[in-house]
Design a protein around this nucleic acid. Structure first.
Length: 291
DNA sequence: GACTCGTGGAC
DNA sequence: TGTCCAAGAGT
């Protein structure tokens, strides 16, 4: 039998006192809202998600409402959240939920995982935060807290779903409510206190138990996650310019207008072909439009 | 596992 | 100014 750690209780208490009042934490927030918020929060900061989420749920209060709309309207409403394929996947997920799951967001992790755009994090986040099931939920914030407090490293290495989930499971309280609060609390801790840069250890509830702090904040010497490639001038940049044009237009965008967005023709063609292949753009006789 | 995929704010 | 980073997922 392992020795129970005091860490979860400290995190749970801190979260109860200091957790932010975010929309998806309001009582009665629907599971559909949780699913939408988790899609939007994949690699997009909380502050940018909040207004788009409110608009989205007012316009499409249920999965069936979104499923009934053209997928291009989902892409347009996604606005500047980035990675617009998430909007396409969310629309497809809404169609599947409507057609195969009776319009109800699935409760169990395997069924959630079967939805497009739902991976290890999102499936568990919905099962735990919307439905109160007991699973470890590991995001980038949790991975950073575990790396520091448990492993004594300044930053987490590249993600490994199996290892990360096992590491959190080892700390997860048995009770449903405590497990929920610990999952949410350790994420929150990483988001607002144990941040990637300039962690606020003076405000941390587990500072006295943090292996990284106790070791004197040794510099990270492990394998780092892959460096993000420069955006300026990249294919993603060109795709982004084209998508912004398609979102703004309510009539087909002509070939000439596309050509005026970026001078390098081969790169422009590559970006446009990619968007067409991804289903984010559709070619009509008069030009290009959202799906 | 490495790579790709948007967008914008903070330092 | 450039770099880092943000509740990841799919290939």
């Amino acid at each position: 039998m392992r020795t129970p750690s005091a860490l979860p209780a400290l995190v749970i208490q801190w979260f109860a006192e200091h957790g932010r009042a975010l929309p998806w934490r309001e009582s009665g927030f629907p599971a559909w809202g949780t699913l939408v918020s988790e899609f939007m929060l994949q690699q997009t900061p909380v502050a940018r998600v909040i207004p788009r989420l409110a608009e989205w749920l007012e316009r499409w209060p249920t999965p069936a409402d979104l499923a009934a709309a053209p997928s291009g309207e989902a892409v347009r409403a996604w606005a500047n959240l980035g990675y617009p394929r998430r909007a396409l996947w969310l629309h497809r997920a809404a169609v599947e939920i409507t057609e195969r799951h009776g319009g109800v967001v699935p409760h169990d992790v395997p069924t959630l995982l079967s939805l497009p755009g739902v991976g290890d994090y999102t499936a568990r986040a919905v099962a735990v935060f919307a439905y109160g099931n007991r699973h470890p939920v590991v995001d980038t914030n949790t991975r950073r807290v575990l790396a520091r407090a448990i492993d004594g490293d300044g930053e987490p290495g590249p993600p490994s779903s199996r290892r990360d989930l096992a590491a959190l499971e080892a700390l997860l309280p048995d009770g449903l409510d405590d497990a929920h609060a610990f999952n949410a609390g350790i994420m929150e801790l990483g988001a607002v206190v144990c941040t990637a840069r300039n962690p606020r250890c003076d405000a941390c509830p587990i500072a006295d138990a943090c292996a990284w702090r106790l070791a004197g904040y040794p510099p990270f010497d492990g394998k780092r996650k892959a460096v993000q490639k420069k955006y300026e001038g990249s294919d993603r940049h060109v795709r982004g310019l084209i998508m912004a044009e398609l979102r703004a237009a309510h009539v087909p965008v002509s070939r000439g207008e596309i050509d005026s967005l970026w001078p390098d023709a081969p790169q422009r063609e590559r970006a446009l072909a990619g968007l067409l292949a991804d289903g984010l753009a559709v070619q009509r006789e008069q030009g290009y439009v959202l799906p």
